[in-house]
């Protein structure tokens, strides 16, 4: 499992900039992020190299931030890579709340980050299917 920062953003000009600026000032390196948006608000999800610093900086600035455990899986950066992972979850009837994927710095490899209801179960079935779960250190590589 890895830790993800989830930040509540009001849907108005300048809010995202406040967050990105703050992270830049604190020299936080972002590995991945995704932004879910609705008419009124958004939720920014970040995988960063230093969660504690980022969390504190954002909280001090008055943002609502939470740390959410998510699972990250390595997959082949080739057609069908993501599908093979999703298939395992689908077979085991694990519902995906959201996901985002990004390419690894290692050639031919990519990562997908999942948010599911039961992380342990998802990790077990993925490991059993032969996928390698990524920890916090690996994901920054």
């Amino acid at each position: 499992m890895i830790q993800q920062l989830s930040v509540f953003l009001e849907n108005k000009p300048g809010t995202l900039l406040e967050v990105t600026k703050m992270l830049a000032e604190k020299e936080i390196d972002l590995r991945a992020l995704s932004l879910a948006d609705t008419k009124d608000f958004g939720i920014l999800r970040i995988i960063a190299d230093n969660n504690e610093t980022a969390l504190k900086a954002l909280q001090d600035a008055g943002f609502i931030v939470s740390i959410t455990p998510v699972i990250a899986v390595a997959m082949k950066d080739a057609p069908g890579g993501l599908s093979s992972v999703v298939e395992v979850l689908s077979k085991n009837e694990i519902n995906i709340e959201y996901l985002y994927a990004f390419i690894s710095r290692k050639k031919g490899s990519a990562y997908v980050v999942f948010r599911v209801e039961n992380n342990e179960l998802a990790e077990t079935v993925l490991s059993e299917a032969g996928f390698s779960l990524v920890d916090e250190k690996n994901i920054m590589e």
């Binding site: 993800q4 939720i43 939470s66 959201y98």
Partner: peptide, 15 residues
Amino acid sequence: ELSPETFSDKVRNLE
């Protein structure tokens, strides 16, 4: 106003 206790990382929950 949302509070840290009522916040969720899932859009579905907030909606």
